[in-house]
Amino acid sequence: MLSSAQSSTSRRDDFGTLPDGRDVHRWTLADETGLTASVLTYGAILQSLTVPGTDGRAVNVALGYDTLGGYLTRVPYFGATIGRFGNRIAGGRFTLDGRVHEVPLSDAPRPNSLHGGEEGFDTRLWEAEPVDGGVELTLVSADGDQGFPGTLRVSVRYTLTAGQLRIDYRATTDAPTVVNLTNHSYLNLAGEGADTVLDHELALAADAFLPVDPQLIPLGAAGSVAGTPFDFTTPRALGERIHEAHEQLRLAGGYDHCWVLDGGRTAEPRPVAWLAHAPSGRVLTVSTTEPGIQVYSGNGLDGSLTGPSGRRYGRYAGVALETQHFPDSPNRPDFPSTELRPGAEYRSTTIYGFGGEAPRQ
């Protein structure tokens, strides 16, 4: 299929069959710059993201699998659309309108709900339809699904044009609920089979971050990044300070924290993060409407999983830049609200742009 409006192409092929016999499809999008993205109907997963470099090579920079079987293990959420609530909810409990809701504990050994529970949106088969420049996936999450109230109707639209992958999230509900959607792609701009992202430079439009307790739940108010290994207000290598003797790094085994983005929630996406790999010349600019970004440095990757390149994914093999609201927001009235009520629409947009320049020191 060709969309003249977007100067990009999309095609669908088969990607396997679920144990219950339902077919999984892969939608591959391509634009005029050589950027390609493959999206699965299982989990609304970004399965691959192939990006040209200044060295003339185009490589897949998204960690993942080349067969459906790998994704059914669901171990590290490679490329997944996360919902109904991305990140952690302390104790798997929250109160909404005076009623306590319990959601599955899925963050072992920590007593938290993580990424929507054991059967979150990353485990669902989504419906898909082509749109100009991309594909739109839809899902209905029933009232009580994983303990969350309200029937939620969700759409995730991936579109590709002019070197940018845009992800638009929309949701409505028939009863008060909480929503926090994100994408959990692990990126390595050297290629998904490269050893580490610790040589990548990262910059964040954030003067503050959320320190966490031993369960990786925010302690309270945001803390300044100044004078800490969490200061990426100017570009620094991810590995420059990741091994420092800082209590927050020790608790998470690296970076697994939410940065409070300058400007808070915005109506339109604005640039908030830059990731650069000097040898290939690849630079990623992340723009979003969200108030926070969770940076996860792949601390839990242990070499037991193998990607399409045939290389094992060791510690720090990829970095996730998860645009979202703050962890444990349903229990934190001082955080930006994640509540969604009937008659309102949840809207969130994140754009991964390639081909620009990273901020200078």
Score class of each variant (00 low, 15 high):
E244N: 07
Q164K: 13
W274H: 04
Y186R: 13
P149F: 04
N299C: 06
A221W: 00
N180W: 04
G70K: 09
T67G: 05
N183V: 01
G307K: 08
D97F: 07
D107V: 07
R153G: 01
G43Q: 10
A194K: 14
Y42E: 04
V295D: 09
G318R: 14
L301I: 02
L187V: 15
E244H: 10
R315T: 06
L301F: 14
G307V: 06
Y42M: 09
D97A: 15
R124C: 03
A245H: 11
G98D: 12
R170C: 03
T33L: 08
D66E: 10
G117Y: 11
Y296P: 14
S3Q: 09
D174E: 09
P229G: 09
P333C: 06
Y158M: 04
G21T: 11
D334N: 11
A37N: 07
T54Q: 15
L165M: 05
G300P: 05
A358E: 12
T288N: 04
N299G: 12
F335E: 00
L340T: 10
S280W: 01
L204G: 01
D143T: 02
M1W: 13
T159S: 10
Y169T: 00
N87I: 03
L18P: 15
D334G: 07
F15K: 08
P76A: 04
R57V: 08
L29D: 03
A108T: 11
S287G: 05
A237M: 13
L105H: 10
G79C: 03
V283D: 07
T233K: 07
A62S: 12
A273G: 00
G263T: 00
T161Y: 01
L139I: 03
T288Y: 03
G120Q: 13
Y316I: 05
P149N: 04
V178N: 15
G310K: 11
S113Q: 13
A5L: 12
R311S: 12
L35N: 08
H184M: 10
P271Y: 10
A222W: 00
D122H: 15
D256L: 03
I293M: 05
T266S: 11
P269N: 07
S348K: 14
A37D: 06
E136W: 01
S7F: 00
E357P: 10
S4V: 04
S3D: 13
A62P: 05
S224E: 07
T73S: 11
D256H: 13
L187W: 14
Q47S: 11
V154C: 12
E247I: 04
G281Y: 13
V61I: 14
E339D: 14
D31C: 09
T289A: 08
R250K: 14
P333R: 13
N60D: 15
D132F: 05
I89T: 09
E129D: 12
A194W: 02
P336H: 05
R347F: 00
N183I: 00
G16H: 02
G220K: 11
A203H: 05
L137C: 06
G117R: 15
S106F: 00
R312C: 09
G69I: 01
D132P: 08
D328I: 02
P359W: 11
L137T: 10
A358P: 15
G43F: 00
P218R: 01
